[in-house]
Amino acid sequence: MKIGALSWSGNNIGDDIQTAAVIQHLPPIDVFIHRDHLNTYDGPETLLVLNGWFLDETENWPPSDRIKPIFFGFHVQKRARANVARHAEYLKRHEPIGCRDPGTTEFIRSLGVDAYLSYCATLTFNAPAQRNPDSIYFVEANSGPFGDIKSSKGLKIKNVSHRFIDVPWENRLSYAKGVVETYGRLAKYVVTSRIHCAMPCVAMGIPTAFVGPDNYRTRIIDEVGIPRLNKPSFWNKIFAGKVANLPQLVDISATKSRITTDLTARIERALKQ
């Protein structure tokens, strides 16, 4: 049996961060399979963790029988739910379905399929051995009127995007791995509107605030306990020199350990079958 991982189209490296997170727990990868074309895969039988956001091409479901799926960190976007529901028997054959968020968990259970809240593999990243934090990272969080300020309380201010345009997915995956490592080495504090920035950073022990939307897709932020902050309030604290008053590090060690144990156990069982 071959070992697979998901590839993606699009310009959001949050998807690639999810693939990088899963790869940590797998044997060496033999093949990358595009998330939106799993139904056309006709290669050797391949173990594949189905994690992340499904599905752009809503009719391209279910996956090929050549794929041996592990559903973990699975999220079904609302537009894809009707077609996923029509193929509930496919999910039933591969239960339990580990879901990234409460909304997907409830949806899968409504189909008569065993589902549970697995959370996301991006919560299993470890910080690099060499950590020397010197920066506050605004990751698609717009530092607003303070964008021209270069430092605060001795910390550099860095604005980062998780979006690319027309970059091959191989390059995005490499960048995704590098950017997570960079946060791990250099971020003293992170404020972001991206869940797949917030979760890796918290997992690596970085105090992190989330300023993105509050909806069914981002409820995992609240489940994990990552604080949501009002942007002006955050800016005022930083640039008034009150870094010490920012929210403290959220300890997710127990959650991280549970997720890691769950995912690695499911992979080991699948490899023995």
Rank of each mutant, 00 (worst) to 15 (best):
C201L: 01
R163M: 13
I165E: 15
V167S: 13
P128R: 03
T208R: 12
R217A: 13
K150W: 11
I226N: 14
F146N: 15
T218D: 14
F138T: 07
I157R: 03
G144A: 10
S135R: 11
Y119G: 11
S161C: 11
F125I: 00
A127M: 03
L123M: 04
D222Q: 07
P227D: 08
G225T: 05
K156M: 15
I220L: 15
V211C: 15
S174K: 14
P133L: 15
A121I: 00
T124M: 02
L123V: 01
N132W: 03
N215L: 14
T124C: 02
I221G: 00
Y216V: 10
A127S: 12
T192K: 09
T218Q: 09
V224R: 02
I221D: 07
A187T: 00
V167N: 04
L229M: 14
L173I: 05
M204A: 04
K188H: 11
N132Q: 15
T124H: 01
N142G: 12
F125T: 02
G154H: 10
R228Q: 07
I221V: 04
I195S: 09
V191D: 00
E170Y: 10
G178L: 09
V224K: 06
S143F: 05
A187N: 01
N171F: 11
A176H: 02
Y183M: 13
L123E: 03
M199L: 13
H196E: 12
P128M: 08
K156V: 11
P213M: 02
H162E: 06
K153D: 14
C201P: 00
S143D: 07
D166A: 12
Y137S: 07
Y189A: 04
L229A: 08
I220G: 12
Y137Q: 01
I149P: 03
V190H: 02
A141V: 07
T192I: 08
V191Q: 10
A203N: 00
M199A: 14
A121F: 01
K158A: 09
F146H: 13
I149F: 13
I195D: 02
R219I: 08
G205Q: 06
P133H: 09
A121Q: 00
A198S: 00
S151F: 08
F146E: 11
K156R: 11
T122Q: 05
I157E: 08
K156G: 13
T192S: 10
F125K: 03
